[in-house]
Design a protein around this nucleic acid. Structure first.
Length: 918
RNA sequence: GCGGAUAUGGUGUAAUUGGUAGCCACGUCAGACUUAGGAUCUGAUGCCGAGAGGCGUGGGGGUUCGAGUCCCUUUAUCCGCACCA
């Protein structure tokens, strides 16, 4: 029999499906292991070879864990709500549900060909009402809870209402949008609408008037992580700042817990760092500056209270709430003009013009509480409304932005820290001794900061405070293709639907764009209201809503009573291994953690962190190929000869190029204009040029895994993708090496069948050398899998076959088949059955098949003389350092190199490595 | 600007974590079998040198008996954040 991968793969994929080989159930008698991939958004372009990279890695790990005796949950589904399907719908009028279903079917077909061990009975789709019922349910929960800062957890909003009724805001320490103060009497006097306005300030899902990233081209708002360089991530349209009423999630309430939680996670340091930066905790002082002619004081936040003696002016953001009060009549025109200008500038322009200094004086003056000097208050857009208090104390000597501003407006610059030359630039470093600073003069900066925290508090002009850069997540999108909010309005007061009214299904519409009045598409739906006629919310939830808790739903996907049953949750707990792209660092991976912590607070899930270990696979880039057309002709010249002609570089479909050699026939057929193409060859071949570019249709470098599966088989694709290099590294897709991996699988097959296809396996005893090779390989491969070093484990397989040579011995080959099964499941399954097994190779167990390793009793170590490696020597493992020293010195080889001179020093480390100094 | 990562043959990469640099492949060259080869098998293949030998992990410096690995410095590339007070 030949290695007919097409027949083998089709046969086993069918068998697995029919036998339900990959179906898993809760089984308390076995330890669980949960391996999860980030589920894909089913785009119209289908899968390319980059998508399966992570899936292959996680599949190998799942299969490996299963062989180790774990009950492995390894599900897959689709993140099916999203912008592209809706954009497509607006253009073509096709309902997103239709195109999404088509795309999903295509994805499924492609995935099935690669032989993944997914339990498809647990599939979820975020656009399925049975699924988004639980997304809506979670939203309702967030709406009806607030965050208690003392208990550090979410609590029912009724408890807060009770506190208000009893004592007003006295004693309440809760996460909120703006600090509030009222008494129980005042609370009692409020009507329902007023009370709701107060509660919106505390609810974890709430409505607020905020500055949002508005994308006019898409007709919707976007989250911060959906905007890159002032352009929308999807589509690259300009984004502007706009004040709008939006739903938000109070993720900031969980900032500290999300920061602390990182400590115990097995995530890469770089990813944790990204999240830490995104949360952006900084310790500083909240301080109040008296303003001349005003009773109230201007509040600022600073991380450098030590520099307060150097404060010579103040700056507020153009959006600051006191802007009118602080602007004097003679300055009003200029200030209003400035604010109007800032509003016009898009986010993108602001970023581009970071270096440009602009601003205008309000005319008001504040008083520096430590120097007593009057200092002017300016407005400038370098101060952001959304961070801190939207106002700063400016220390031009020690902050480069304040410095630039002071220079531009000719303001005073007073140095208060020794160490820099402030004649040309500010001295920003947090080091040096204080000068010109009253009672803190002479102190070190760090000491001075601490002293000032106390001093500020003592004088009652402020206090130490922790500030986060993290913002609350804007949760509404003015779009159609998303989860509807389970919200209706009475007199503009929002109310949630009750749980038994869920899901609130997305109604059908004919037109998917915004209405003429600029309202979301749901405004077109007649009867989009409760039975009593109260209107439903018109916007829908953002993309991250559906992906925030999907890992929980996989545990119990068909439960109509709960998101996940207690039994399923307590067994599967959380994800042991999560594999996916790093691009979700500040989006999905933040929101999921928040969502999970919230459900944890409510007691619905038993783990506070959703993803224990996370591996980020690298991106696969495209490797484009070029042909060189002689200008003005239909002649194409090979890469090495193109310098002799004037040529034009043309992208050519990489699927008709092999090892950079063009398939001439295929090229002529590729496009009608090339039918009569002529070629100038080198060495009888047409060699193409190449470049690494993003994988994209327009560069003809998209490689569809189907082609690879067709030409080499799924097992080859799986192994080759892993062989390409370390999983976490980005790398170009390059099929130049794929033959090597395919050849390996054929050689493996060749251990069972000779070249005439005759079965040749014997029960002959293996030699010690063969056993040593086998066990060395088992050890290495298992270690590598545990470390996600799949490329080196494949190398280990290759070394193994090289060392074994032609070794058709059952004793050797059988364990090898099990060992390779996670990587190449189809061929392994076929060979496993060839060996006479009835059950799937997936049900084999390592302890039974891959017995203990051969214990090594000695090892060869290099010996160097004066640091130069000279010879090798074998020592028993249990030899002591002194014995090794004696043995080395007695060795004739050592005597040759030392030339009889007595060694000054012999270095033995852990009985392992030796160097002789003479 | 701040933070993080990476740099090794013609190519992808490996290195027992401080111990023979280049494993395993691709490619190339040579040979075998073949009507043929984009099949298979065998061998060679870091660079310089005829050779002995020398030089070699982006550059420079250091620690060490010994450095791809640790420290300092510098350059280049990639990623994240970015007027965050």
């Amino acid at each position: 029999m030949e290695y007919d991968f097409r027949a083998i793969e089709a046969k086993w994929q069918k068998e697995w499906r029919e036998r339900g080989t990959y179906k898993v159930e809760v089984d308390p008698s076995r330890p669980k292991f949960y391996v999860l991939d980030m589920f894909p958004y089913p785009s119209g372009a289908g899968l390319h070879v980059g998508h399966p990279l992570g899936y292959i890695a996680s599949d190998i790990y799942s299969r490996y864990k299963r062989l180790c005796g774990f009950n492995v949950l390894h599900p897959m589904g689709y993140d099916a709500f999203g912008l592209p399907a809706e954009q497509y719908a607006i253009q073509t009028g096709q309902h997103p549900a239709v195109t999404t279903t088509q795309n999903i079917n295509r994805y499924r077909e492609q995935l099935d060909k690669i032989g993944f061990s997914f339990d498809w009975s647990r599939e979820v789709r975020t656009c399925d009402p049975e699924y988004y019922k639980w997304t809506q349910w979670a939203f309702v929960q967030m709406f009806s809870h607030y965050y208690d800062n003392v208990e550090q957890k979410a609590r029912p909003i009724e408890e807060l209402i009770a506190k208000f009724a009893a004592n007003g805001t006295e004693g309440v320490d809760a996460a909120c949008t703006a600090e509030m103060k009222f008494t129980a009497e005042e609370w009692a006097a409020k009507n329902e609408q007023e009370r709701e306005q107060v509660l919106q300030n505390y609810r974890l899902a709430f409505r607020a008037d905020t500055m949002v990233n508005w994308c006019p081209a898409l007709g919707t708002v976007l989250a911060n992580d959906e905007v890159k360089d002032g352009l929308s991530e999807r589509g690259g349209h300009p984004v502007e700042q706009k004040r709008m009423k939006q739903w938000l999630l109070r993720v900031t309430a969980y900032a500290q817990r999300m920061l602390d939680g990182l400590e115990k996670l097995e995530w890469s340091d770089s990813l944790k760092e990204i999240q830490r930066n995104w949360i952006g905790r900084s310790t500083g002082a909240q301080m109040f500056f008296a303003v001349k002619g005003m009773e109230e004081k201007l509040e600022i936040f600073t991380t450098r209270p030590d520099t307060v003696f150097g404060v010579t002016f103040m700056v507020i953001a153009p959006e600051h709430q006191w802007i009118d009060r602080l602007t004097t009549d003679e300055n009003r025109a200029a200030v209003e003009e400035y604010i109007a200008q800032t509003k016009k500038r898009s986010e993108r322009e602001r970023i581009a013009e970071t270096k440009r200094v602009s601003g205008v004086a309000t005319g008001s003056y504040a008083v520096n509480p430590f120097t007593g000097k009057e200092i002017p208050i300016y407005v400038s857009d370098y101060v952001l409304a959304g961070y801190g208090t939207g106002a700063i104390m400016a220390v031009p000597a020690h902050d480069s932005r304040d410095y630039a501003f002071a220079r531009h407006f000719g303001l005073e610059i007073v140095p208060v820290v020794e160490g820099g030359d402030i004649s040309k630039e500010s001295y920003d470093a947090k080091a040096g001794a204080m000068i010109n600073s009253g009672f803190i003069t002479g102190m070190d900066v760090k000491e001075a900061i601490e002293v000032m925290f106390d001093e500020v508090e003592k004088r009652g002009i402020g206090r130490k405070r922790i500030n986060y850069r993290l913002r609350d997540a804007i949760f509404s999108r003015q779009r159609y293709w998303g989860e509807p909010f389970p919200i209706y309005y009475k007199d503009d007061v929002p109310y949630t639907l009750s749980v038994d009214q869920l899901p609130l299904e997305l109604p059908a519409v004919k037109d998917f764009g915004p209405t003429e009045q600029g309202e979301p598409p749901l405004a077109r739906v007649e009867g989009w209201c409760t039975e009593a006629g109260e209107p439903f919310e018109l916007s829908t939830m953002p993309g991250f809503a559906g992906s925030s808790a999907y890992y929980l739903r996989y545990m119990d996907p068909h439960n109509s009573e709960a998101l996940v049953s207690r039994e399923a949750d307590e067994y599967w707990r959380n994800v042991d291994l999560y594999v996916g792209g790093i691009e979700h660092a500040t989006g999905h991976l933040m929101y999921s953690r928040f969502w999970n912590m919230f459900l944890y607070d409510l007691g619905y899930v038993c783990e506070d962190e959703p993803f224990k270990k996370l591996v980020n696979q690298g991106m696969i880039q495209g490797r484009s190929n070029f042909v060189y057309r002689v200008v003005g002709t239909n002649k194409f010249v090979s890469l090495g000869l193109r310098d002799q002609y004037e040529t034009q570089e043309i992208h050519v479909d990489v699927n008709i190029v092999r090892n950079d050699v063009l398939d001439l026939e295929a090229f002529r057929k590729w496009r009608p204009e090339f039918v009569d193409a002529e070629f100038i060859l080198e060495d009888g071949k047409y060699v193409c040029g190449w470049a690494i570019e993003k994988m994209s249709k327009s560069m003809f470098n998209v490689v569809n895994p189907d082609y690879i599966v067709e030409a080499y088989g799924a097992d080859t694709l799986r192994m080759y993708e892993m062989f390409l290099g370390p999983l976490e590294q980005s790398k170009p897709w390059d099929t130049n090496g794929i033959d090597g991996v395919h050849k390996f699988l054929r050689r493996l097959w060749g251990l069972f069948y000779d070249r005439f296809g005759e079965y040749k396996l014997t029960d002959e005893k293996a030699t010690p050398a063969e056993l040593k090779t086998l066990h060395k390989t088992i050890k290495k491969v298992r270690e590598d899998i545990e470390n996600f070093s799949f490329n080196t484990s494949i190398a280990a397989f290759m070394i193994c076959l090289n060392e074994l040579g032609d070794c058709p011995k059952r004793e050797i080959v059988e364990p090898l088949v099990v060992l390779i099964a996670p990587f190449a499941p189809h061929i392994a399954e076929e060979l496993w059955h060839t060996l006479g097994h009835e059950t799937s190779v997936c049900d084999a167990k390592y302890p039974e098949v891959c017995a203990e390793y051969l214990v090594e009793n000695s090892h060869e170590y290099p010996v160097s003389i004066n640091g130069k490696m000279r010879f090798k020597k074998e020592f028993p493992l249990d030899m002591s350092n002194d014995e090794i020293t004696a043995a080395v010195l007695a060795d004739p080889a050592a005597q040759k190199w030392t030339e009889g001179r007595a060694p000054k020093k012999v270095i033995v480390v852990k009985g392992k490595i030796i160097n002789i100094v003479i």
